[in-house]
Design a protein around this nucleic acid. Structure first.
Lengths: 337, 337
DNA sequence: CTGTTAGCGCATTCAC
DNA sequence: GTGAATGCGCTAACAG
C-alpha cells in the first residue's frame, strides 16, 4: 500500500550526516548550526518528507493528540463545546480526536479503550445517559491519562469537572414562569443520575419552594429529553392533571410538548407556558419561539480544555469549575393575557 | 505522568516465558498451545494490560484508524454522514477520527497533515468551500493513503467519489416550483467550484429550460448558503426585480430569505414560493414549513466508508457513486391560491 | 556543533 | 510449541 516513505535516515544519507542531526535540525534545536538546520529543512521539503508521528509518539511516550468523547456530535451544545475546545487546543499544538458514544455505554467504553490504546495525551468526556458502570473512567485514571469531565459528569470519579450552572438556569427559568403567573408548573427532566439533570431538577424545586408554589409529583417526569417522549408524556398526563406550564431540561422535550399542545389547540403562551434548556438554534425558529437557557457552550469548551492542559502540564487545576448560563425569554413563556 | 504501563514484557516475566509467546498468545495465534493462550489472556486482564496501539502501529506500519475531514460537524447532513461511516467502520474494527475544517483551507491542510503524520489507514474528505489549492489532496495520494472524497469533491483529484444526485434534486425542486405556477424563479447557489453546488445549479437550469421558463441572471446568486447572506441577498434584489420563487442550494439561505420575506409581509407560499436543500431538521419546525431535498446522508456515509474499505483492501472500487435524493414538499412551495 | 548508542513496545522471521 | 534476534522511525543521553 503505502509507497516507500521518506525517513530521516534517507535525508541523512543524502546530506551525508546522521539521523540524529536531521532529527535535531527538524526540531529546530539550536545546537545544530543555522546553516545545517536550513539545509536539512529544505531537503526534507524537497524529498517530500513527512514525519512519522507514530514513531515519535512511541519514542517520546506521549502524543500530541487529545481525545474527546461526547454523546452526540449533532447537538448545538456539544458541537459548540467542541469548537471551544479546539480554540484552546489547536494553538497549543494539540490535535483533537472526537468520538461519539451515541448515548450508548458500550460505545463509550470502546471509545475510551481506543483512546487509551492510542496513548492520547488526555481525555475530555461527557457521559452518555445510559452509562451505569464507571470502570472505564477509572481505567483512564489508572493509565495516568489526564481526564476532565464536562457537562454530564460523575462526581465519584476523581477528576476536574467543568459544568454549567444548571441549578441557576433552572431556577431562573422556573422563577420566570412563576412571575408570569402560571400556577401549576411541571417539569420534564433527564436522568437524575446525571448531575446536569439533577441540578436542573433542584433549581426547579428551589424556585417552586421559594415562591411557595405547590409541587405536584405527578407533573414531574424524568428521562424525558427527546422530542418523542416530550410529546407522548405531555399527552399522557395533560388531560388528567391541572397543568399550565412546563420547565423542560431539554429543548427537544419542550419542542415535543409544544407540538402536542399545538395539535390540541392549547394556546401558548396564554393558556400554557413552556421553557426549554440549551438554546438550540431551532428555539428561535419555531412558532411560538421557545424560551430557553443559553449554556455558553463555547466558553465551557475552552474552560474544559484549559483545565486539561493544566492537568497535562502538572499545573494546579481547579477541580470544580462552573460556567454561567443565561435565561433567554421568548414568546413561549410570556403570558400575555 | 503516565504510571508504569504494563507491557507484554511484564506479562512474560510473570509467566516465565518470552514476550514473543505473549504477543502471539494475545493475537490468538494457534501455534501457541490453547492452555498458554488462555493463561496469557487471563494474566493480561489481571495485570491490567492495555496493548500499546502506537507500538503496534509502528511495527505493523499501519493503523486501525480512519480519518475523516468535514467542513462542519454541526450540520445535520454531515453528522448523519458521520454516523453512516461509523456504521460501516466500527464493525470492521476501525476507529474513526473526525476533524473539522470549519470551511477553512488552512485548517483543512493542517488536518490532512495531522492524519498523515498519524499514519491513518485511510481518509474520507468533504472539501471546505474556501479550498482553492488541492496540493494537500495530492499529498494524501502520494503518501499511498487510500482516499475517498464525498459530497464536496474535486474531480481533478484521482480518487473514488461518492456524491448525491444533486442534479436530480435540484431539477425536482425547480420543476415543482414551475408546476405550482411560479413564474420568476431565482436561485441561491453555493460556490460553483464545488461540484455539489454546480450540479444543483445545473439541475435548476435544466428544469427551467425544459419548461421554457425565462432565466434571469439577475435572480441567480452564488456563494449564498448562509442564513445571513440568504437574507441580505434577498432584500438586495427583491424590490428591484420581478421574482416570486427561489430555489436555494442551502436550507440556511432559504431560511434567511424566508425570514426576510416574513418581515416584508410577503405571504409564503401564495405570493412567493421557496425551496431549500439538505432537509435540515429545522425545515419542518419553522413556519411555514420549508420544502427541501433529503440527501440520504446516512446511506451516503455508508457508501463512502465501503468504498474506502475496499480501497484499503485493494478490492475494486466504483470510482464514481451516486446516492439518491428525495424531494420533500412542504408548505413553503405549495401555491394555494 | 555533530556522531554514537540505545531503546520506546510490539510483531515477525528464523531457529530448534 | 516456544525462544532469540531484529527492526519499525524516531529521540535523547552521552561523548567529543
Amino acid at each position: 500500500m503505502s509507497t516507500n516513505r521518506i525517513t530521516i535516515k534517507d535525508i541523512a544519507k543524502k546530506l551525508d550526516c546522521t539521523p540524529s542531526t536531521v532529527s535535531r535540525a527538524l526540531a529546530g534545536n539550536t545546537r545544530v548550526s543555522l546553516k545545517t538546520r536550513n539545509l536539512v529543512k529544505k531537503t526534507a521539503v524537497e524529498m517530500g518528507y513527512r514525519p512519522n508521528a507514530i514513531a515519535s509518539a512511541l519514542r517520546k511516550g506521549k502524543v500530541d493528540t487529545i481525545g474527546m468523547i461526547v454523546p452526540r456530535i449533532n447537538r448545538y451544545f456539544f458541537s459548540n463545546v467542541i469548537s471551544g475546545v479546539e480554540d484552546i487546543l489547536n494553538p497549543a499544538g494539540y490535535n483533537l480526536v472526537i468520538c461519539q458514544s451515541n448515548e450508548n455505554e458500550y460505545k463509550e467504553q470502546k471509545a475510551v479503550q481506543t483512546l487509551l490504546q492510542n496513548q492520547v495525551g488526555g481525555i475530555l468526556i461527557s457521559l452518555s445517559v445510559e452509562t451505569n458502570n464507571y470502570e472505564h473512567l477509572n481505567s483512564i485514571i489508572a493509565s495516568g491519562t489526564p481526564l476532565v469531565q464536562f457537562d454530564r459528569v460523575n462526581l465519584n470519579i476523581e477528576s476536574p469537572i467543568v459544568i454549567n450552572n444548571n441549578f441557576e438556569g433552572a431556577y431562573l427559568a422556573t422563577e420566570y414562569l412563576i412571575k408570569q403567573g402560571y400556577k401549576n408548573i411541571g417539569h420534564f427532566g433527564g436522568n437524575p443520575k446525571i448531575m446536569a439533570y439533577s441540578e436542573r431538577y433542584n433549581g426547579y424545586i428551589k424556585a417552586m419552594n421559594t415562591y411557595n408554589m405547590n409541587i405536584n409529583d405527578k407533573l414531574i417526569k424524568f428521562d424525558t429529553i427527546t422530542q418523542e417522549t416530550g410529546s407522548s408524556e405531555l399527552i399522557r398526563f395533560f388531560n388528567d392533571n391541572e397543568i399550565d406550564a412546563l420547565f423542560c431540561s431539554s429543548d427537544f422535550a419542550a419542542l415535543g410538548a409544544l407540538e402536542a399542545l399545538n395539535k390540541m389547540k392549547v394556546d401558548i403562551p396564554s393558556e400554557f407556558g413552556i421553557i426549554g434548556f440549551a438554546n438550540e438554534p431551532f428555539t428561535k425558529l419555531i412558532s411560538p419561539k421557545l424560551s430557553s437557557v443559553e449554556q455558553n457552550s463555547f466558553k465551557l469548551g475552552r474552560t474544559a480544555a484549559i483545565a486539561l492542559l493544566n492537568s497535562i502540564d502538572n499545573k494546579p487545576v481547579e477541580t470544580n469549575q462552573t460556567v454561567d448560563v443565561e435565561f433567554i425569554p421568548r414568546q413561549s413563556s410570556n403570558k400575555s393575557i
